[in-house]
Design a protein around this nucleic acid. Structure first.
Lengths: 119, 119
DNA sequence: TAACATAGGCACGAAAAAGTACCTATAGAA
DNA sequence: TTCTATAGGTACTTTTTCGTGCCTATGTTA
């Protein structure tokens, strides 16, 4: 069956949407990173969800999975060149999201971890 | 219980994410619009999902619901001033989404309705 | 009088997404 | 020999999201 999107926004949302991808991508924008470190940084994610999401990002052509042939295993994930182009999109989303939080919750009732970091 | 986001991207995704909001917002960016017209434009949406999503967008401060006191009822939805600020975000998402489709499916295996309209 | 147009509500069921628990492989260190 | 570190896999359950079907209100029109 042939996929048909209603508009181009849906395309992006399918790629970066869901409960974990934004958080994962957030860390990937800072450079190559090992599985275990991601697991530590992405608070609350399980092994299953992490590998599942990474696999999807890889299939979508946004990241590359590099396996070092050693024991214990070492696997590193990196944004592809195309994945790099997401950075500016994420930047725009971050900016709007930050402003929105201030607009909706001016007294800090809702907070954002790393709310002040760049990107 | 107090909500805590992991990063500012999640904030935006919560507001414009899900199966229908992008499509609804897409049409709202073109100006005030009645419920019935939205239902016609947002292909496949049900009454229930439409009103549900509109209610959320209203609670999030992005749209305004204006009721005309007449029979049969007339209700019109409009972007708020803050909602207007979403336009540039949606524009960026559209642009990336359009490019991505070309990148991933250079032979047009996947299509986007209204893929050439502005915004 | 009966049907229509418009916007919406609600109970319930189906489907999709996410979470839990437990399993594998392997070289080296204790 | 047993335990550790690392990355990943799978069956199953729970939670969240979405869809279906049917109901309400009311002035106008046929």
């Amino acid at each position: 069956m042939q996929k048909q999107y209603n508009n181009r926004i849906e395309v992006v949302l399918e790629v970066i949407g869901g409960k974990w991808k934004a958080h994962i991508l957030y860390h990937l924008t800072r450079g190559p990173i090992r599985t275990g470190e991601l697991k530590r940084l992405v608070t609350g994610i399980t092994q299953k969800m992490l590998t599942e999401q990474l696999k999807e990002l890889e299939q979508d052509g946004l990241i590359v999975r590099k396996v070092y042939n050693q024991v214990p295993p070492k696997v590193e994930y990196t944004l592809t060149e195309y994945g790099e182009s997401l950075k500016e999109v994420l930047k725009v989303l971050c900016d709007w999201g930050g402003d929105y939080i201030k607009f909706r919750y001016p007294n800090g009732e809702v907070t954002v971890r790393n709310g002040n970091e760049e990107l």
